[in-house]
Design a protein around this nucleic acid. Structure first.
Length: 831
RNA sequence: GCCGGGGUGGUGGAACCGGUAGACACACGGGACUUAAAAUCCCGUGGGGGCAACCCCGUGCGGGUUCGAGUCCCGCCCCCGGCACCA
């Protein structure tokens, strides 16, 4: 053994051995319990960054620890390889996206290997590989046949910089999630996936995902945004037709004093045409349509259309307004306005001098329409509501909805904030959408036997003039699969979130060319037991992946692994790790505050990089980069190395089977060793507190470090306890710093490879305390302390406490009013 | 505005069920070793007071419950994240 720790030499040696032995390969084996540990796969942007190091270190700690625990662990890695940066590189540098991506993967694969992550490289996959994306095309065709995919013209979010459409989830603050340019609206023919058909199931799933952070579930629930209410029809006054509105408050219908339409609502033009209001309305519509959503929200503008409708319950004539804040995309694009019970309507009524009518009376002093300064949005008792007077407003919702249905003027309805997922992208570097357009047969899916539709390699990348695929005539020109006549191919590609919506399923058999999934492999490995990644995917990726899993179940592509009656969910436990921060900002190239993992590995070694990223912060929190922190992690590893090197001559001796004559020093050290086992195990398996697990091992090393000298201690039981402590240290640290611990494990004669060593259980007999320290509180303040055997009776403890001179001084001459004994902890005295 | 998560030494962070606040580490100060430095090792380190034993204060602020509150309750302030005319 070298006396100086040389991380690079040690790490290379072990990495070569692991690769040669395919150490981390796992096969489905129903006779063994499984554990599927997954980290969000990387986009091959060029180099790994500290966020990857952190994410994958956390995952590797879990994977390695579960293996030692006896689980058959699936721990795969792959590449989310389609995406715009590859195409941008092609435009800027002339490199083909395929070459650029392949080279990046090659480099990043080596970086990841150098970190010593225990991936099963036999299962590596890349989403740009036709053997991968052909299945995605097959799923899409199946979805098309089931009506789960459809094409329609719609107003879409368009990013001019990226020259493509964005899904609603990809628009942040009105800006593109990737390049941050302002998103515009365009009217385009697009492919959509009917995620709204799964809204209720996605919502129901949230309730059973107890292994997910509450924060993520809240975000998903809100994104789905289910609200129940009623659709009511307000007949137009003096002409045929009606205005349909959606409301969550049918109980307030008697308080409606006007109706508001979105400016895009078809009735706006129809109703104002030929009236004296026509010009005013047209000008208003014109003004609002060019406004951004923010501006629309800003001014609560509106204009009278010149037309009226009638309240379906009272027959009362109500003016119809066009209002900037009403969204065409939500509900019916029209609302019944109840100023007394909706704050927004209240403000609008004030501004336009419209009446306010109270129909829900809360407990307490009666509301008077004339003296209100805000709407009463809460519950109460219905008043001025005809036959419904006196009902609690909650009951009124149901009763009024039922009445509307009976009279044919409405029905109960559920609305979602969630929109269908637009998946068309006008880009080259993605999965081709497997559809052709035939003049005779219309939209024709490419038959399964003809899949994959390969992405052609000979496209040109100019950055302008639309999608490169659309300009490739030999790609576009094709024959119709049905009539064999001339047809044109779809030239859009899929949103890259499609590929990441099912990769975790494909890892169970990525080499399979005859079918997407082997049901037996899926049944064995799924669900993912621990998923780890950044919280920035809380809605996007995680919602799409849940949706896809449910669709694939319905398409019969995967077996349902859930108990009967439970909705299928892909990720049983989710850990969202925080960002890596330096100088108060997220590490990023544009901010110039990145730390290159290569530099860390070169200078300190992978084990130090791993240890630092685990120890510096608990996983959910942001990690503040600190050069000194890295030094500290490195120092700890050097220290362990030195300690083992010093005692190597005698540490390797076998452990005594059961030391009979045990000294106090040995018992104390054994207690520390086994307490550490208990703490570290709990921290890793239950609490995900990896930082405190490492701290516990540091305490253990502090506890015996100075006992290890060149010569062994004379006391044989202490000698044995030290050997046990050192071995335990290496075993407990193995998931965190696998290279150095493997090396030292050989030095101390560990025998079987460290990674194959069973995770230890704490020995309860070693945990028993000989003496415990108790504190004495007088009037709630700590005034003394004493030690006692742990099993002493309460009244004796009290006597011991009162015997303390300091306590006596405080108690003398006063009456003891109350005492309280917590065994093993404290004695509390009140005087 | 609404919904989450936070606020603890000079710093990152511990304290799991209400029971010794500040584990572990960094930084800093002192010492040992060294010709010197690095490395390493030892000691100290929440604030204030005292020669000392000790005493007082202290987990964003103000109240409360309790023998006992960083932890529970009520009312605020501030920071971070998400959503934001969703009818």
């Amino acid at each position: 053994m070298e006396h100086r720790y040389d991380p690079r030499a040690v790490e290379l040696r072990w990495q070569e051995r692991w690769a040669a032995d395919r150490t981390h390969h796992a096969e489905a084996d129903p006779s063994r319990p499984k554990f599927y540990c997954l980290e969000m796969f990387p986009y091959p942007s060029g180099r790994i960054h500290m966020g990857h190091v952190r994410n994958y270190t956390i995952g590797d700690v879990v994977a390695r620890q579960r293996r030692m625990r006896g689980f058959n662990v699936l721990h795969p890695i792959g590449w989310d390889a389609f995406g715009m940066p590859a195409e941008n590189a092609a435009i800027e540098r002339g490199a083909h996206p395929a070459d650029w991506t392949r080279d990046n993967i090659a480099y990043m694969r080596e970086q990841i290997r150098r970190m010593g992550f225990s991936y099963d490289w036999d299962r590596e996959l890349a989403t740009c590989d036709p053997i991968y994306y052909r299945w995605e095309q097959a799923f899409f065709v199946a979805m098309l046949e089931r009506g789960l995919a459809y094409r329609r013209k719609s107003i879409v979010n368009w990013c001019e910089r990226c020259q493509t459409v964005l899904a609603n989830e990809q628009v942040e603050d009105g800006k593109c999630w990737r390049c941050e340019s302002v998103v515009q609206e365009r009217d385009l023919e697009q492919w959509f996936l009917r995620i709204t058909a799964y809204a209720d199931e996605l919502l129901a799933g949230c309730d059973r995902l107890s292994g997910w952070p509450e924060k993520v579930l809240v975000m998903q629930r809100h994104w789905i945004g289910r609200s129940t209410g009623a659709e009511l029809r307000f007949p137009l006054d003096g002409r045929d037709g009606d205005v349909r509105v959606f409301t969550t408050r049918p109980d307030t219908v008697f308080g409606a004093t006007f109706v508001s339409l979105a400016v895009e609502h078809p009735l706006v033009g129809d109703l104002s045409r030929g009236t004296s209001e026509e010009a005013k309305v047209a000008a208003f519509v014109q003004k609002v349509r060019v406004q951004s959503p923010d501006e629309r929200a800003e001014g609560k503008d509106g204009v009278f259309t010149g037309a009226y409708c009638r309240n379906p319950f009272t027959g009362e004539r109500l003016p119809i307004y066009a209002a900037s804040f009403v969204l065409m995309a939500y509900g019916a694009g029209a609302v019944m306005a109840v100023p007394a019970h909706d704050q927004r309507d209240f403000e609008f009524a004030r501004a336009h001098d419209l009446p306010v009518r109270v129909v829900v009376q809360p407990d307490g002093p009666p509301l008077l329409a004339g003296s209100m300064d805000a709407a009463h949005e809460g519950s109460g008792t219905l008043v001025a509501s005809g036959e419904f007077d006196g009902l609690p407003s909650e009951a009124g919702k149901t009763r009024i909805t039922e009445a509307a249905a009976a009279r044919g003027i409405g029905r109960s309805e559920t609305q979602y904030r969630l929109r269908d997922w637009g998946v068309s992208r006008q880009r080259y570097w993605g999965t081709p959408i497997p559809v052709v357009y035939c003049e005779r047969d219309g939209i024709v899916p490419v038959p399964l036997a003809e899949l994959p539709v390969l992405l052609p390699v000979d496209a040109e990348f100019t950055g302008s003039g639309g999608s490169p695929l659309a300009r490739l005539e030999h790609f576009v020109q094709t024959t119709c699969p049905t009539c064999k006549g001339p047809a044109r191919r779809e030239t859009d590609t899929f949103d890259t979130f499609m590929e990441s919506s099912w990769y975790f399923l494909r890892y169970t058999g990525p080499e399979n060319t005859t079918r997407a999934f082997d049901p037996e492999a899926i049944r064995y490995w799924m669900p993912v037991d621990q998923y780890i990644g950044g919280v920035e995917h809380a809605v996007l990726h995680l919602l799409y992946a849940r949706f896809f899993t449910k669709v694939l179940r319905d398409l019969g592509e995967i077996p349902d692994w859930e108990p009967p009656g439970q909705t299928i969910e892909p990720f049983a436990n989710l850990l969202t790790q925080g960002m890596v921060i330096k100088d108060g900002a997220k590490m990023s190239k544009s901010k110039g505050n990145v730390v290159d993992p290569d530099y860390l590995i070169e200078r300190y070694g992978a084990d130090t990089a791993r240890l630092f990223s685990i120890f510096a912060a608990p996983p959910e929190r942001d990690l503040d980069w600190s050069d000194q922190g890295v030094e500290g992690a490195s120092r700890f590893l050097h220290r362990i190395w030195r300690v083992v090197a010093r005692g190597q001559a005698w540490l390797a001796a076998p452990l005594d089977p059961a030391p009979t004559d045990t000294s106090d020093a040995a018992r104390t050290l054994r207690r520390l060793t086994h307490k550490t086992i208990a703490r570290v195990t709990d921290d890793i398996e239950r609490r995900n507190h990896f930082n405190t697990a490492v701290a516990a091992v540091m305490e253990l090393v502090n506890g015996y470090g100075e006992l290890i000298q060149d010569e062994p201690p004379a006391d044989p039981s202490l000698r044995s306890a030290i050997r046990e402590a050192v071995r335990t240290t290496l075993v407990l640290l193995a998931p965190f710093v696998p290279h150095i611990t493997s090396e030292l494990w050989d030095v101390v004669g560990g025998g079987v490879p460290l990674a194959g060593t069973p995770w230890p259980d704490a020995d309860p007999s070693a945990l028993v305390e000989d003496v415990v320290e108790l504190v004495v509180q007088v009037n709630g303040k700590v005034r003394g302390r004493f030690t006692a055997a742990p099993d002493i009776a309460d009244d004796e403890l009290l006597a011991r406490a009162l015997a303390d001179p300091k306590v006596q001084a405080l108690v003398a001459g006063k009456t003891i009013r109350k005492t309280h004994v917590v065994p093993g902890r404290l004695v509390s005295i009140v005087v």
